[in-house]
Amino acid sequence: MSLEELAYKGLTSAHSRRRFLKKVGMIGGGVMAMGIVGEGLTFGSAAAQTAGDDVKTLQFAYTLENVAIAAYKAAAGSGLLTDDVKAVGIKFAGQHQDHANALKAALQSVKGDVPAVPTKINFPAFKNQADILNFALALESAAVGAYYTSSGKFSNRDLAVAAASIVGVEATHVAILSAALQKDPIPTAFVTGTPFDQVQATANSLLGAPSGGQGGGTPATTTTMPSGAPATGTGGSASQGPDLTGAGVLGLAAAVAGAAYAVTRRKSAQTAEEQSNEE
């Protein structure tokens, strides 16, 4: 059973689907919940026959975000990171938490089940900082792939907008981690992330793939690229320009200095915001 199937477990019954559809008409709470991803989000008329799949996709995304949060927390506690890199990881974990919170609120607003936060994740053994950064890069690329793919599958355009607002941020994580690893941070002009079948394989290896069919009537879920998707699985970009790997401005120092600055600034900005809120 794939992670996606696990995440979808129990939500494909006629009952839950009907319940979801019933809620589609009163999604005001969802608008508020997803409001943080952009002003004026409204849930239009979702295509009724696939609305249940929207819930599943939200659940899968929620689980992925929680895996990322756990990964960055584990990395921060590993003792293998420099302070600067640790600060970047903590910052990214915070952004993934924001995403998870938004997805959770959206799920609750449509009375969809919120999957349990995974507690047992099979992280690979990390020997050093580069191992961790490479793992984080793979995870972020997978997240980009997951959101990119799902943005073409949502029956509700507003959910596609929400996915787009999140995936753009995951893409910045990919670039920053690539720069920190002295890899080309912008290898392609069209950023689609990891192909979805690989995303599922990654998720399965991290969360385990139980052999028993515990879904009790859960239909076999196959996830394919949306039919309208551009053929970009292999990058899609014929000419890629010079490889910037190792370019001075993109090196670890610059990326980390910027991110460390970011964390400091974020704190002071938050303080300022809190103060203004109190007024």
Partner: peptide, 30 residues
């Protein structure tokens, strides 16, 4: 989908330029 793939590339440009300017390279969660 194509527009999202381009949006993501522009977002990466933003991150790199902000990094070069010693600004927070990932300033928003959304």
């Amino acid at each position: 989908l194509a527009v999202i793939s381009i949006q993501n590339d522009e977002a990466q440009h933003v991150a790199l330029l902000r990094s070069a300017l010693k600004m927070d390279p990932s300033p928003v969660s959304f």
